[in-house]
């Protein structure tokens, strides 16, 4: 596992470590029992403050993604396997996304634009879902009355 911490993103460095770890677990790149780099290793490879790394690991521990073993290291928890979507990387959905990403970049979009588009699509989905949920609640309430 190697973290890539971006500055000036408006996302705290510890959150970036949390997100990247979770993403690696979801993608199956990190498996239960895998050891995360020590705070010293992250400091020396990414120039990130060790307290930042430890804060991220504590949060991952609270979320059940990792286990902090005192004096031994930080390991991906067994329960984290449930969160893994390893097959996703081999699914046709991923192939479609990879192909679409290629087209987007070829059309001159920047990486940032691609991420924005995915975010936007997800947000619209959430709003649609929220809207459907609300209208069905309304219907139920209406039925009762």
């Amino acid at each position: 596992m190697r973290y890539y911490i971006e500055r000036r993103r408006g996302v705290a460095a510890y959150q970036q470590i949390v997100e990247q770890t979770k993403r690696a677990v979801r993608a199956g790149a990190l498996k239960p029992g895998d050891r995360l780099p020590t705070a010293r290793e992250v400091a020396e490879t990414c120039a990130v403050n060790p307290n930042t790394t430890l804060k991220a690991y504590r949060e991952l521990d609270r979320d059940g993604v990792v286990e902090l073993r005192q004096g031994v290291g930080t390991f991906i928890a067994a329960a984290a396997a449930d969160r893994s979507h390893a097959p996703a990387a081999e699914s046709p959905l991923y192939a479609e996304l990879a192909e679409w990403t290629g087209r987007a970049l070829a059309a001159g979009l920047l990486e940032e634009d691609v991420r924005d588009l995915v975010e936007l699509a997800l947000q619209e989905r959430q709003q649609t879902a929220a809207g459907t949920a609300r209208s069905s609640t309304d219907k139920r309430n209406g039925g009762r009355g």
Binding site: R7, R8, R40, T45, N49
Partner: peptide, 26 residues
């Protein structure tokens, strides 16, 4: 990176002045 490695290893406290505001967050 080297300085922070020592901080991780020895738990020392560092107080440093800097004009490089953008680099302070990590």
């Amino acid at each position: 990176a080297a300085l922070l490695g020592e901080v991780a290893e020895r738990g020392i406290t560092v107080l440093l002045s800097s004009h490089l505001v953008a680099e302070l967050d990590t």
